[in-house]
Design a protein around this nucleic acid. Sequence first.
DNA 1: ATTTGGATCGGT
DNA 2: CCGATCCAAATT
Length: 212
Amino acid sequence: MKPRARPPRKPPRAFFERSTLAIARDLIGMHLVHDDGTRLRRGRIVETEAYQGPRDLAAHSSRGRTARTEVMFGAPGHAYVYFIYGFWNCLNVVTGAAGVPHAVLLRALEPVAGLGERASGPGLLCRAMGIDRRFNGIDLLGDELWLEAGHGAAPRLGRSARIGVGYAGAWALKRWRFFERGSPYVSGVRPRARSAAGAGRAPLRNNARART
DNA sequence: ATTTGGATCGGT
DNA sequence: CCGATCCAAATT
């Protein structure tokens, strides 16, 4: 029998040229896939943050066009990967038309396939997905690292201020973080100690960490 | 040339 | 809260 024709799963370029907040929201529930030629890793996105430079003082691009932020100023649908705190890589999806330095930080994945470790938090996400600065600037519509439409019911969305941007003044208060409400894979949610002895709905906190 | 502090994380 | 650990950007 014939394989059933599926709708296209990779979003077109135009998906990344819409409002950055809409994209950050829509990415929740979508899949991030990395094919390194040997191994396929796949996770379902459960947490994102929008960065809308140059006005948004939390965005790296608020400091202007530099070697590091160059890809943020480029065409949408590419990867912006930066290195932080001497140890971690973080992956962003560049959004907005060329010249508009916006991006969406991917903060946490629910493992689907091939992830050897927890991917809750932007640094852990990159480590689990095998992503580092070599991926900076690559096209996310290619065949190495890409996004796909999710399936199943639409996720229940939560929203909060962004994490770790206390230095950004009033911009730090904007609720530009999106997550799947109730997901144990959102960063800051402790992995549930086993024994679902009632799965006792601990009042799942929003884990909106504060930072000075 | 040197300093500062960061879109983090795990342990305490 | 604290330290680990490197780099970009700002400052001297």
